[in-house]
């Protein structure tokens, strides 16, 4: 199994397409950093438009590395599923397209093993992509913008809130958020993998994955009570942004933040469990479908 995984990772590492994702992440992050370095104050002004007459605060300090990373992740984690699909949706369909799938299946490795290894490789790719995001969006931003307390702008129901997390209480939240994002994006990897079994070139499963993510994301953001209750809880896209939960700091009765706390850990834990259940079901479905499939490519 380990040898197979090594082979799979070797193959991924040798493919030019793998690096498109890393280059895309770096490019998006760089554009954000450049824009905020040049004119971050405008963004701050926009976010604080409604209270700018009531409060004054240190705007220069507010645009720091931690804040930047949050802003970048906010945007990037919506696009990253496409990058994950680029690799994961190619897992089986790419082999079928190249003609190597029949050779793989004729080797003394079980189909279950092959799917699990493909899934593990896609997961490792996801982890590396998130590590790369952590390096570029978090650590590079910290180098460029420095550290500081972090502001989180949040809409909660029909209200908006500004949360302030002190700088010594942030790093663990990022570690947890990246870990959560890994789980969330692994759902995309598992979905792509399942779809890739049905196709003989990777374009179809990539487009199908992206379409599913887009449609489900739209449904997840429609505010209609009937959808809220009956549809949203079952859509994985409703939980993709759950990483933000680690930045929703807990408060006491007076609204004072409690260092090291989370506002709603049970909700995050539930989201995580739902995502893990999605992964499990999708991978199991992939195993079952793949085991039954006749390889005709």
């Amino acid at each position: 199994m380990w040898t197979l995984l090594q082979i799979e990772l070797f193959k991924i590492s040798k493919r030019p397409r793998t690096y498109i994702a890393f280059a895309a992440v770096a490019a998006i992050v760089f554009i954000f950093q450049f824009a905020f370095k040049a004119d971050g104050q405008s963004y701050m002004d926009l976010m604080l438009q409604s209270v700018k007459d009531t409060f004054t605060f240190d705007r220069v300090q507010a645009i720091n590395g931690y804040f930047m990373c949050y802003i970048i992740l906010n945007t990037l984690l919506i696009q990253v599923p496409i990058l994950i699909a680029l690799i994961a949706a190619d897992s089986i369909s790419g082999e079928a397209n190249m003609g190597t799938l029949r050779l793989l299946i004729s080797k003394p490795i079980s189909r279950t093993q092959l799917i699990l290894v493909k899934f593990a490789a896609a997961t490792i790719f996801t982890i590396f992509l998130l590590l790369w995001m952590a390096i570029t969006a978090l650590f590079m931003s910290l180098l460029i913008f420095g550290t500081g307390d972090m502001l989180v702008f949040r809409s909660k129901g029909d209200e908006s809130q500004i949360l302030l997390i002190t700088k010594d209480d942030i790093m663990w939240r990022y570690l947890a958020a990246f870990a959560y994002a890994t789980v969330a994006l692994t759902v995309i990897a598992a979905l792509s993998l399942l779809l890739s079994i049905f196709a003989e070139n990777s374009i179809g499963p990539i487009i199908a994955t992206v379409c599913i993510v887009i449609v489900c994301t739209i449904i997840s953001n429609i505010n209609v009570p009937i959808i809220d209750k009956n549809v949203k809880p079952f859509l994985f896209t409703s939980y993709l942004v759950g990483w933000k939960g680690f930045f929703y700091i807990g408060t006491d009765a007076d609204g004072k933040t409690i260092r090291g706390s989370l506002e709603n850990w049970p909700a995050i834990r539930k989201s995580l469990l739902i995502l893990i259940a999605h992964i499990f079901i999708l991978v199991m479905a992939a195993v079952v479908v793949f085991k039954k499939k006749d390889i005709l490519s």
Binding site: I7, K14, P16, M98, T100, L103, L104, K107
Partner: peptide
């Protein structure tokens, strides 16, 4: 086995292809 066309990983060298399938066997 060689099944129909001998399709291999085009982006890998002959040596790497051989090495991969030998390990898998």
């Amino acid at each position: 086995a060689v099944i129909e066309k001998p399709d291999l990983y085009k982006y890998l060298s002959a040596y790497d292809n051989l090495s991969i399938f030998a390990k898998m066997s």
